[in-house]
Design a binder for these strands. Sequence first.
DNA 1: CTAAAAAGAGAGCACTGCTCTTGCTTTGGA
DNA 2: TCCAAAGCAAGAGCAGTGCTCTCTTTTTAG
Lengths: 229, 229
Amino acid sequence: MSSTPQGARARARIEVTAAIKDEARRQLAAEGAAKLSLRAVARELGMVSSALYRYFPSRDELLTALIIDAYNSLGEAAEAAHDAVADAGHVRRWIAVCEAVRAWALGHPHEYALIYGSPVPGYTAPQTTVPAAARVGLLLIAIVRDAHQGPGLTNSPLPADLHPEADRMTADLAPDLPPEAVTALVASWAQLYGLVGFELFGQFNRVVEDREPFFRHAVERLAHGVGLK
Amino acid sequence: MSSTPQGARARARIEVTAAIKDEARRQLAAEGAAKLSLRAVARELGMVSSALYRYFPSRDELLTALIIDAYNSLGEAAEAAHDAVADAGHVRRWIAVCEAVRAWALGHPHEYALIYGSPVPGYTAPQTTVPAAARVGLLLIAIVRDAHQGPGLTNSPLPADLHPEADRMTADLAPDLPPEAVTALVASWAQLYGLVGFELFGQFNRVVEDREPFFRHAVERLAHGVGLK
DNA sequence: CTAAAAAGAGAGCACTGCTCTTGCTTTGGA
DNA sequence: TCCAAAGCAAGAGCAGTGCTCTCTTTTTAG
């Protein structure tokens, strides 16, 4: 009986795959997705570039792996920040998640750009990324749900032409919540990334200087907008 | 006396420069910024790639020219949409500008990605782009200013720790407006691009289906958020 | 023990941005 | 009017890229 369940080869494959991703992530963090080079990764790992194709069939596949990891890293950061204030009020929890997203983005700008910036060259995200991408959204939904089951939500009514879509979204995302809240939640979710992206991509340069209080206030208003109080 | 003021050479230079930009814009619209190739542009124009460097010293310089054009194109679209409803109420004018931004983005996805997506490979936008980039922002400020001088604005107060930054932004952007409105305006400006970007970059896939009413409602709420009524 | 599968190495293709040198043409001053 | 200077096009070439193909070696599994 062997101590390496699937054999040494399978074990090595896992390690090499991880090493490739690590080195790729290093280059991504250092230079951005566009300058991520398979040949450079292979060179740094002491292997020849063609050998790398045994692990990732193309550059896009490597990027996809990095994208999923980035979504999960962001999701974990947001979840950790939320859990740290799980006892606090719903607005405070909402703010904590938003600030965690911003902090993660500022700490991993190229990875953030990879997942929330413009998609890389002709690249379209495969279905595989969906579960990881949803983590932050699910967190926000959970906060709003807690508030709904606790102190309740205060939402303004929706226009008539939005009722069908609002009901559809609600059925898909959170059937137990009022459509007004779900609609506001989805919009706030997108708006959060507008705030983060503008800061990260330099649109706030020479416009907003002291960004923490600005961001905090903005996401607090988002929280009120979804009905939290 | 010559009919070509600066000589035929200067005239030709202008035409060739325009032809290069046109062809580059075509490739940008077709394939995205990352696949924009100087060699392909030159090839399509029947010139050799090295000749192109007489007009643009590098690929980044070409991209910068396209970025400025894109900002101006977006700005013009927004201004035209605004002027078409200049007599309507402030909220309606605000919505018109936002919807013009969205429509332009959906019609020019790669150009939108170029200016509001993640900045291209290690590329940092030069100062030259600033005036063009400000056009939509100035339009939104103008609407809020009109409202302020007309029916007035209704804003909620700011937290104390935001006062310094809010006053600074107000002095920079619109000294005649209340800091509460300016702060909300800047945040809404960023949030608008969050809504547009999420739709454009596929984050709304399988989440929001009927996007026009959703977007319209969201930006109407933004309008109320900056104090318009 | 052996056939099959997996992995690495290397050469090569087509492409990229960019530089440099070589000629030709237009320009502007003496 | 002539002539040097500047502007421009063309071609070759460099270093780099993603990716494919073939060949050899190593490991696995029957």
